[in-house]
Amino acid sequence: MENKDNSFGQLIDTSKDLDNKITSNIIKSAIQNFNQKIQLVYEKPNRSKIFVNNESLVEVALFLRNTYGLDHVESMSGTDFPAENEIEINYHLGSYINQDLHPYILNLATRVDRENAKSNSLINIFPSVEYFERETYEMLGVYFVGHPRNEPFLLPEDWADLPPLRKDFKLKGR
């Protein structure tokens, strides 16, 4: 889990000058507050990604919301990495309150074990995550601790196969 060699993150040039100073401030202060627990994956204009250990996901999210006003979730998704036996969960946080952060999206990423996929729900911090987490539960089989409804949502009620967005779920003819 620790010091993940994230092959996607390394290709992006982090030395680029940013238009928006506040975004790099967020990441700096977050890393200062939670050293070791947060890794910066990349930093682009208006977009950045940080990687958080699954245990400290909730406190980091709470810190980001309270300190910088990242108040809603633009998108939330999960990605299956069978080679590393992990599932990555991405929360794309945005802000409506903070005018400076309007164009900015922070990708808060965490990874859970593929066999026993379980993560803490952020529903108490971002109520807007409710349906996204339900969708991730049924599409990738990640159980969200603290979420009131881990149950089928988009798929038929009698779905008895693997969660479809896992990589070992094969489409017919593909």
Partner: peptide, 22 residues
Amino acid sequence: AQPGETYRRVESGRGALGYYII
């Protein structure tokens, strides 16, 4: 495509419409 990821969004008729592509 180059390896990497991106999140781009536009304002559609119903609001922000974003794609997260890895």
